[in-house]
Amino acid sequence: MKYQSAFEMIGPVMVGPSSSHTAGAVRIGNLAREILNEEPRSVEFRLMGSFYETYQGHGTDLALLAGVMGYSTDHPAVSEADKRATEVGLVYTFKKEHLGFFHPNTVAVLLHGDRHNVDLIASSLGGGKVEVQELDGLSIRFSGEKNTLILYHADQQGFLAKVSHVLDSEGYNIARLSLERWRRGGYAITVCEVDEEIRGDLLEILHTKVSQLKDVRVVRSL
């Protein structure tokens, strides 16, 4: 992925000590929280070998926790996220696990809320840049750098046509689109990045006009 913006070289504003181990970890936590779309009750982090070995020294554990609690990369309370988590009753665990052939700084986040769960694998690529590798067991890639719609739906003909029709008529430009499914006619997830800010009414319109749609989550750009 090429770097494009001045703010990727001068930025992000973050609490230290490491853009990949701290800022990137906060962003991964943020992504999981946004996809969950409710207050998390418990979370399990499984870290790849090298990420696990140094996580305490870099505050990666605090950063991941801060992220799922919705703190930004520059929030002064990142360094005491463990205490805050205990205060708000968020149960957390950290484990070491080989997750597969990913970037060494990769973590699996299993987040539980009252109504939803999110099962996410994401990598911290350096300089605070992150990339989701898997969502709910499907190989789905996105960075959260653009406004992103995550559409949970049944795999049926015409789904993308309806979605793109709605987006077009509501004035959205699709920057990137990818669909993954478990099997034909089964459960599928489509990730759609758009250039515009996502307005609240779009989700209602999508639910009304796209019958195959089961759920939508929004990840807002940085």
């Binding site: 990727e8 070289m9 001068i10 930025g11 973050m14 609490v15 230290g16 000590p17 490491s18 300089g127």
Partner: peptide, 18 residues
Amino acid sequence: EVNAGMGRIVATPTAGSA
């Protein structure tokens, strides 16, 4: 030093070289 203390910095271009 602020960075190592989990204080707030701007990555330029990274935290280690900030």
